[in-house]
């Protein structure tokens, strides 16, 4: 018997006492209250289980190698000192490593990842919203076919393209170039449909009014349409940013120069490199989780809305 057992017994015991031992005459709403109580316990347990790995991660990156195995989370407060808790893992992480192209510092991978995620998101946001606008607000011959083609293209799993794309990237000399990471995924059909759906909701009269005022077609898209679909823009940016940030396969396959690598690729390599110094690559992992987490908590409302639009309508 240990603390975990006592806590669980206390939590569920309280439920059984409330539900079965207290007579209804004493506590008329007992069934409703006990149900809500049980639901709360399950939710708290689920949330606790889900965040435990994160808490554990944060605790472990600051622990010195000497106490790493001694305590699962943090050492007791009485033992806190620069001997047990320090930034050694980060110093080691940032000290730089030799590569065929010279010393590379961890900063470089962070900058690469941030650059690629931001550039990829901007390009993708521009191109998908432009296509979405064309499909939402114009009537033209071939529109039906294009939409059919796009929907059809979503049926093929991405992994089917792994081998042929590799050969194509090689043939057009995009190996080791960031173009190979930015361009092939820049026009995600999912994004085009997301923007098409959002822009269809904007009344035509707004577009016509702008057109009568002499605005060019591009200006209508940029100055009238885009500000009106801002919630969707936020959601799409976050989804694309996360996709780019976490993208592992493309840089793993296409990028050879060490100094051009991104965080997922390098952390996967560190896993083999720092075999017994967990703290070092855990510190890298923590740094890799922070940027998307900040973005997510800033944009979480839009994100959830954007994620579920396609699923709940129709």
């Amino acid at each position: 018997m240990n603390t975990i057992h006592y806590v669980l017994i206390a939590l569920f015991g309280a439920y059984f006492v409330m539900r079965f031992l207290i007579p209804t005459s004493v506590f008329p709403r007992k069934i409703k209250v006990s149900r809500a109580y049980l639901a709360a316990i399950f939710l708290i347990l689920a949330a606790a289980l889900v965040i435990t790995p994160f808490v554990w991660l944060v605790c472990n990156v600051f622990k010195d190698q000497s106490v790493l195995m001694k305590y699962s989370f943090l050492p007791p407060i009485s033992e806190w000192s620069s001997q047990t808790l320090n930034f050694t893992n980060f110093t080691k992480l940032f000290q730089g490593e030799e590569s065929p192209q010279g010393t590379v510092y961890f900063w470089q991978y962070i900058i690469n990842s941030i650059f690629l995620a931001c550039a990829g998101t901007s390009i993708s946001l521009f191109l998908t919203s432009l296509s979405g606008y064309a499909l939402a607000k114009y009537k033209f011959k071939g529109r039906g076919f294009l939409i059919f083609f796009m929907a059809g293209s979503m049926m093929f799993p991405a992994m089917l393209f792994l081998a042929p794309l590799y050969q194509i990237i090689y043939k057009i000399h995009w190996m080791d170039s960031y173009l190979s990471l930015l361009i092939p995924n820049a026009c995600a059909v999912f994004g085009i449909f997301l923007f098409r759906q959002a822009m269809q909701g904007v009344p035509n009269s707004l577009v016509e009014a702008a057109r009568m005022d002499g605005a060019s077609e591009f200006r209508i898209y940029w100055n009238v349409m885009m500000p009106l679909v801002r919630p969707m823009t936020g959601a799409y940016c976050l989804i694309t940013f996360l996709g780019n940030w976490n993208n592992f396969l493309s840089p793993q396959l296409y990028i050879q120069t060490h100094a051009k690598l991104t965080l997922p690729v390098i952390l996967n390599q560190y896993l083999g490199l720092y075999l017994n110094e967990y703290g070092v690559f855990l510190a890298g992992t923590l740094l890799a989780i922070i940027p998307p987490a900040i973005l997510f908590f800033a944009l979480q409302k839009e994100f959830v809305a954007g994620l579920t639009t396609g699923a709940t309508k129709g």
Binding site: N246, L267, P292
Partner: peptide, 10 residues
């Protein structure tokens, strides 16, 4: 939010 690679490392 955490990519599969980071989750794998963790």
């Amino acid at each position: 939010l955490v990519g599969q690679i980071f989750v794998g490392v963790l």
